[in-house]
């Protein structure tokens, strides 16, 4: 029964948790890669002037930004609320890549003077697949099916052709009922 009367300690501050995760199962060169950022305010004060910056993680020489911004700003995130932001990227080349943490800065309440910095979760090292390797594993393989049909068709149509020529040369001599 005592547990019901236990209330959260008064923090008098906003506290942000920032999660960064990828929504694409595979990172492939020149294919879309979706990153989602979630910011949760678990404090009891609104977080003011929240700026999420992830420009350090995705240098433009290795990533092309298809959609979304790497630096976003929210005026206010109320306590208990969360916001989601996602971006679409395209890796320019393949290989191992280290996905580092994004940084978010915020003022922990309405009158705060000192800005706070919170780092997001880091997905860590991941492999960016070569497009050729990816397609070898996951493409629809239409070429393979066409070759298969050609081979399978040969085994059916060549005997038919033989039968047909014989049939034309020697017409059937079946005896009909004479009635």
């Amino acid at each position: 029964e005592d547990a019901e009367f236990v209330t959260k300690p008064v923090l008098n501050t906003a506290r942000l948790l920032v999660s960064k995760q990828s929504h694409s199962q595979y990172a492939v060169e020149n294919m879309d890669y979706v990153i989602q950022y979630d910011i949760f305010n678990i404090g009891d004060q609104p977080a003011v002037q929240v700026v999420l910056d992830d420009r350090n993680s995705f240098p433009t020489q290795s990533f092309e930004i298809v959609k979304g911004l790497l630096q976003v700003r929210w005026e206010r995130i109320a306590p208990g609320e969360n916001v989601t932001h996602s971006i679409t990227l395209r890796p320019r080349n393949y290989g191992v890549f280290n996905y580092t943490a994004a940084a978010a800065s915020y003022f922990p309440n309405e009158n705060a003077k000192e800005v706070r910095v919170v780092y997001s979760t880091a997905p860590g090292e991941g492999y960016i697949y070569r497009l050729k390797d990816y397609e070898r594993r996951f493409s629809s393989k239409i070429g393979v099916w066409i070759v298969y049909l050609l081979i399978a068709g040969a085994t059916i149509f060549f005997p038919y052709f033989l039968w047909n020529t014989i049939q034309n040369k020697y017409p059937s001599t079946t005896v009909r009922k004479q009635k």
Partner: peptide, 13 residues
């Protein structure tokens, strides 16, 4: 294995 500097925060999952 992440270093958190003074006055900074980090999130882990």
């Amino acid at each position: 294995q992440r270093t958190v500097a003074p006055k900074q925060e980090a999130t882990f999952d």
